[in-house]
Design a protein around this nucleic acid. Structure first.
Length: 604
DNA sequence: ATTTCGACGCTAGG
DNA sequence: CCTAGCGTCGA
């Protein structure tokens, strides 16, 4: 039914029905006629309304203990209601106002009665509610609601293949279903064929969700789904609703300074190269370095690029070429400055809306369980400050060195301050825990008085920590991450800037000292071979089809992915647990406010 | 002639 | 290992 035509009594009745409903299945409809369930998710079109399928009876939904698999496809209850909530209010009618209020009441009730709300891309739905009904529905109401998202369920079952759209999800989960059920015809209230169609889609969505819920239970993923991923939907919706202020003047000013410095560096590069070339082009740089200057003949072998198999011009290579010619150093600085300008300054400016930014968070974007962010990618904002030489041409010729820290462009609201809290060396701790390596565990026994990698280097090489040099520390750190990431000796050599032989000697000595770490990686790979998948601390899974492949390259890649997933995925588990717990206490607390932005690994 | 798109390289974050 | 994002270059 379309609630615009309801009388007072009917409205009251509908609210009563909502209160007694067992499940809601929702989809937003956009201005251009498409809905959340169409394959092309149009972001340009604004929301016109919300279609809700109100289920008055359900087959037992979500209870970890109750794993009854008996879901039947026939039941489409005659009492189910399909309602359309118009959310756009164009004119300043008096009627429009009362309508908006009523729709707000219905939505409030839907969230408040703690009945599952099933939605494909539930985060977007919640964000829209907060944006349109912000006065009626606060973020605390959103926090209390129960939402289910089949896309997240599908991702948990196999995080490697992201479901691009609702249609793909349905295709996937109905071709395996043996009973293709007949579509119900009881949505007769609506004359409009479009909404009728959405109604059928919602019915399918509901069935897909039930099917997925069953799969999750069978695969032992139900707990992760309910305790981590579902609460996170609401957290991300609230995070996206909260905007962060950015210092626009400062950004524009630094953009100009960086632009000037880039021009200088470009000139210098052309000078020492003896010709004009596009400094940002790696292929043109390769030509200058190796075909014109022939620098590769003067040093050890240059690593090749992955696909084209030509000489790389990466940072590692340029570092080695530094003493042979002035060009590499100039390019290195150019790239650093260019990265800052293009990504953190100009890029941030294009993300801004009225002086503010707010990232879009993707919960199903990674294979490891981590979150990803875009517009801007707030997780990738440079940490360390960079020094820039700024030449003053105006008065005299004084040179000024200014430092740019990209994170300082974000400013906290008046009376508030950003709080950053991140786990300390979480991956290394997880590696220690999972391997139960006594030496590695010892590292974390004592309070963290000295730097962990310094201590590790001293322990590994058997030298007192006072004698550990910066280079040793760096080496130990890279070594650890290579193990975590499952890198082989070639990768490590490139990372360390040593020969492959040296790198493999390092690996040997490391594995000799930390024997249980080696056992852990072997065990992980072995278990993956047997089961076809690996599991994180909280039971998150990643199937790896190539683990038993004939092809060496594919197989060893799958082995590295297996080890990496267990460590990285477990770290993701812990971080998500922290996010959920912090959010919960913020919701409960009367004194804490909603002003939080939680990054994957830290909170500003 | 000009725009668009995919493949590729590089580098920031973890 | 796994992200986002910026930049070439050729079709």
């Amino acid at each position: 039914c379309d609630i615009r035509n309801l009388g007072y009594e009917e409205k009251r009745e509908l609210l009563a029905t909502i209160k007694q409903a067992r499940a809601f299945i929702t989809a937003m409809v956009f201005q251009d006629g498409s809905s959340q369930l169409n394959s092309e998710q149009v972001l340009t079109s604004s929301v016109k309304g919300i279609v809700v399928l109100v289920k008055s009876q359900t087959k037992c939904l979500c209870s970890p203990s109750n794993s009854s698999p008996a879901y039947t496809w026939d039941a489409c209850n005659q009492n189910d209601k399909l309602i359309y909530l118009k959310t756009e209010w164009s004119a300043l009618w008096k009627q429009e106002d009362t309508h908006k209020k009523y729709v707000g009441q219905i939505l409030f009730q839907m969230l408040h009665c703690k009945v599952p709300v099933i939605c494909f891309n539930a985060k977007d739905f919640l964000r829209t509610l907060l944006a349109v009904y912000g006065s009626e529905i606060s973020w605390k109401q959103v926090a209390d609601s129960v939402v289910l998202d089949p896309r997240i369920a599908a991702w948990l079952i196999n995080p490697s293949d992201t479901v691009p759209s609702f249609e793909c999800l349905i295709q996937k989960y109905f071709e395996k279903s043996f009973s293709m059920r007949k579509v119900s015809t009881n949505t007769g209230f609506l004359r409009n064929a479009l909404y009728q169609n959405v109604g059928l889609h919602l019915e399918k969505l509901y069935n897909a969700m039930m099917d997925l819920a069953h799969d999750l239970q069978v695969q032992g993923l139900w707990k992760v789904f309910c305790t981590l991923e579902l609460p996170l939907i609401k957290i991300l919706a609230v995070m996206e609703t909260h905007k962060i202020h950015v210092n626009k003047q400062e950004l524009k000013k630094t953009s100009e300074i960086l632009g000037m410095r880039l021009k200088e560096l470009e000139q210098e590069a052309h000078q020492v190269a003896g010709e004009q070339f596009l400094v940002t082009s790696s292929s043109q740089l390769r030509e200058v370095l190796f075909e014109k200057l022939k620098l590769h003949t003067l040093c050890e072998k240059i690593p090749k690029t992955e696909i084209q198999q030509v000489e790389s011009t990466s940072e590692a290579v340029l570092n080695k070429l530094q003493d042979l010619h002035p060009l590499p150093k100039i390019i290195l600085e150019y790239r650093q400055v260019h990265k800052i300008k293009s990504t953190y300054v100009d890029g941030l400016l294009t993300c801004m809306k009225k002086g503010f930014i707010s990232s879009t968070w993707n919960q199903t974007g990674t294979a490891t369980g981590r979150l990803s962010a875009k517009h801007p990618n707030i997780q990738g904002i440079s940490k360390h400050p960079v020094r820039i030489i700024k030449k003053q041409y105006i008065k005299g010729k004084e040179e000024e060195i200014i430092t740019i820290s990209p994170r300082t462009f974000f400013v906290s609201n008046k009376g508030y301050t950003f709080l950053a809290a991140d786990f300390s060396h979480i991956e290394l701790r997880i590696l220690a825990d999972l391997s139960s390596d006594p030496e590695l565990l010892k590292l974390f026994q004592e309070p963290e008085t000295t730097d962990i990698f310094t201590t590790l280097a001293s322990q590994w090489k058997g030298i007192p920590s006072e004698q550990v040099k910066q280079a040793d520390r760096e080496q130990a750190k890279r070594m650890v991450y290579s193990v975590v990431y499952g890198a082989g000796k070639e990768r490590l050599a490139e990372c360390l800037g040593t020969t492959t032989l040296q790198a493999s000697q390092f690996i040997d000595s490391f594995m000799q000292k930390y024997k249980k770490v080696h056992e852990f990686t072997k065990m992980t790979i072995e278990q993956c071979r047997n089961k076809g998948y690996v599991v994180s601390i909280m039971g998150r899974k990643r199937p790896l089809a190539n683990i038993n492949a004939q092809d060496y390259k594919l197989r060893t890649q799958a082995e590295r992915q297996a080890v990496n997933f267990v460590v990285q995925g477990s770290a993701a588990d812990l971080c998500k647990m922290a996010m959920v717990e912090i959010f919960t206490s913020v919701v409960i607390s009367p004194t804490l406010t909603a002003r939080l932005v939680i990054n994957d690994y830290k909170m500003f």
